[in-house]
């Protein structure tokens, strides 16, 4: 490794490791503290029963909180809702992000203006997106209702119902995330030499073949990275769902984060909430590792 010195004297410059530690150590300490402390604390809570009424006290209950989960229908339902929401969000965000990137990479008039507009949703906060989509999709104030009446309907059209609320959430989430994906994919597209497209034209490739053989290969790594990122972001998403649907109607959109919030802050069952939050953490880490094993490893070896 670089930086090793044997025998003949040493440099008066800092070695790589010394300089790296000097630059990185304070930050790393900070991060470890603010990450490790809450994690440790949450782990401890997940083994406790925490009681507020009649004086705060904690009882060590071992794995009881984890055992309760197995028979908790709401818990299993929240896992299913989380998976459905995450898969829909990721597929939509990646597809729309790729489409936007391809579109923005074309020569066009006023490219700066179009790019600014397309980047906009990324700048809107998730709670803001939540508020927007709740007004946009509910019957009373919704866009669909306005359009339906414009064409002569006489009843409100609402999508915030048991059947479609997850899709509304996924669309809103994708609306917010797609520009992030598009931005980085576009940066990637800009590195493809124009010559390659000339070559593809000489070989008389169809637009689809050109996309497959010229455009896609350099994007694959970024696509993988952002599939991971959008997966993580979707699974840990809370504020957006909290604002848009509040887990409802009923429990139709009660994703794990919402369930944990409700258990911890409404029911004040902190131990049980902490235990569920560990399950969520493992699901998040597990799904990114699965993605890496199935897809990322191949891309990294390229």
């Amino acid at each position: 490794m670089a930086g090793q010195v044997t025998g003949a004297g040493r440099t008066s410059e800092l070695s790589n490791l010394q300089f790296a530690l000097l630059m990185a150590l304070p930050v790393l300490l900070f991060l470890v503290l603010v990450v490790a402390y809450p994690l440790g604390y949450a782990l401890w809570m997940s083994f406790q029963q925490i009681v507020f009424f009649g004086g705060y006290r904690t009882n060590f209950v071992g794995l009881a909180n984890y055992a309760t989960m197995l028979g908790d229908d709401k818990f299993w339902w929240s896992i299913w809702v989380t998976i459905r929401f995450t898969v829909e969000s990721v597929v939509l965000a990646m597809a729309i992000g790729l489409a936007l990137a391809l579109l923005l990479n074309r020569p066009m008039r006023w490219p700066g203006l179009v790019r600014t507009i397309v980047m906009l949703p990324w700048c809107v906060s998730l709670y803001g997106t939540g508020i927007m989509f709740s007004y946009l999709a509910t019957g009373q104030t919704g866009f669909a209702t306005a359009i339906a009446f414009f064409f002569g309907a006489d009843r409100p059209v609402s999508f915030v119902n048991r059947q479609w609320v997850i899709e509304v959430l996924a669309i809103g989430n994708a609306w917010n995330m797609a520009p992030l994906v598009a931005f980085f994919l576009l940066a990637n597209l800009k590195t493809i030499p124009t010559r390659l497209y000339d070559l593809a034209a000489i070989d008389r490739m169809s637009p689809l073949e050109t996309f497959w053989n010229v455009t896609l290969p350099p994007l694959r790594f970024t696509l993988f990275v952002f599939t991971c990122i959008t997966t993580v972001l979707s699974m840990k998403l809370f504020d957006f769902i909290f604002v848009l649907s509040g887990g409802g109607p009923g429990t139709a959109s009660a994703v794990m984060t919402y369930q944990i919030y409700k258990i911890s802050f409404r029911d004040l069952n902190l131990g049980y909430g902490a235990a569920q939050s560990f399950v969520l953490l493992f699901l998040i880490v597990g799904s990114t590792m699965t993605l890496y094993a199935l897809w990322g490893r191949r891309e990294a070896e390229r």
Binding site: L39, S277, T288
Partner: peptide
């Protein structure tokens, strides 16, 4: 990056 805010 993977830590969900609700857990912390």
């Amino acid at each position: 990056v993977a830590l969900p805010p609700v857990s912390t």
